[in-house]
Design a protein around this nucleic acid. Structure first.
Lengths: 125, 125, 125, 125
DNA sequence: GTGGTCTAGACCACC
DNA sequence: GTGGTCTAGACCACG
């Protein structure tokens, strides 16, 4: 788990996204305790301060909450988690569509390409 | 045209993308002369150094070429431009699909959302 | 009664203030016995250590006293309680005025706002 | 300007508030450039990282904006600044009233005290 | 020059 | 034990 941060994006944001993904995929349950900042830091091979930033950001977007002296927990508000799932989905779709349209592609073209890929995937699997 | 670069992405990359889009959409024709670095800098309200980077990058990806003393021109190689169009499309689709899958969504779900949006757009227009 | 301590202020101070308020409002009478530390801890859902600090602090400001083997009691010195009431009032007023002035508001402005609120409240009630 | 941070509140928040006050009082004008993080750090005698946090927070509450490579500026949105003024006023008033009421004082009592202080101040000045 | 990120390591208050 | 703050100093991309 060390040295895997290649993208130009800041490590702390990559970690935020990774955790969000894990939550959305259900690998982390509502209310579940995240590792302590020190443990998490060791686990992913970064400085505790960086994890601090990650947890702060998760709190800011109300996806986790920290209880003093106890640790940081995935929010137990399941509605918020469904919301998160929708937000992530929507933001990706919106960004994708806007990119695509700005390049002058029509939605039909794109749907055709996507469906082709789907067919391909069926054979590959 | 000033102060509109808010994203965390470097301004010069935002400009590269914008120019690629304009080329792909046909707003800039093959072989067309781009504004001088100085003019472009004034036009978009950034430092000339930034435009310098933009043109260098466009050259690196063989989408534009600089002729000394004459200026910078969109490549006149139309094959390259078709290629660019396909590359951009493919990279966006690939990135989108990988994002979506990482979050545990299936392609079917996504297609459904995309089709919903399409329907919506018909009403909005 | 769990997880309601969100402010950045220490939980034990929040509890001290809450108890002072209850005393000043007369919800707790002079000489009245407070719940045992253990009971109080269960009641408000915090660690007994935290309640220990709360009672110690109440003792320090001579608002409660602990009798070994008997428990902790609101002071029966009614003069002290009137004093407490005045102290709290004064400290809030002083802090408020100093905040307001630092921001460059005049007392007149503030009084106007306060009186508006009062009028509003009459309608809301 | 060194060693003046006494309160139990974090330095970075004290600085955020100080800057907000200066903006609300008009000591800092809309659009005005703040000192660079390094300069400000020297000026107030703290580490640049601490100032970084201050500026980030000011940006988060849309009271300042940073332009890459240029510096951090008070927002030039004057509407936002009026809003800020009102927000600060309102938050102090609300907190004050809620404190006061929780202790069982009536608004009338408080207004009387405030007006007394005002009269006093007239003599003191 | 500017801000942004990261590390290393310290100290603190709180639970 | 936990998270929160702060320092010192480094490196980077950007304008």
């Amino acid at each position: 788990m060390v040295g895997e941060f290649t993208s130009s994006q800041p490590i702390y944001l990559q970690l935020v996204q990774r955790l969000c993904r894990q939550i959305v995929r259900g690998e982390l349950s509502p209310g579940e305790k995240l590792p302590s900042m020190r443990d998490m830091a060791v686990k992913v091979g970064v400085n505790p301060n960086t994890i601090q930033r990650v947890y702060t950001e998760l709190e800011r977007i109300t996806v986790a909450e920290t209880r003093r002296g106890q640790g940081t927990f995935v929010t137990s508000d399941e509605g918020r988690l469904r919301e998160l799932r929708d937000e992530l989905m929507a933001s990706h779709v919106t960004a994708f569509l806007s990119n695509i349209r700005e390049m002058g592609f029509t939605l039909e073209e794109v749907l055709r390409v996507l469906q082709d890929r789907q067919t391909l995937d069926l054979f590959e699997q």
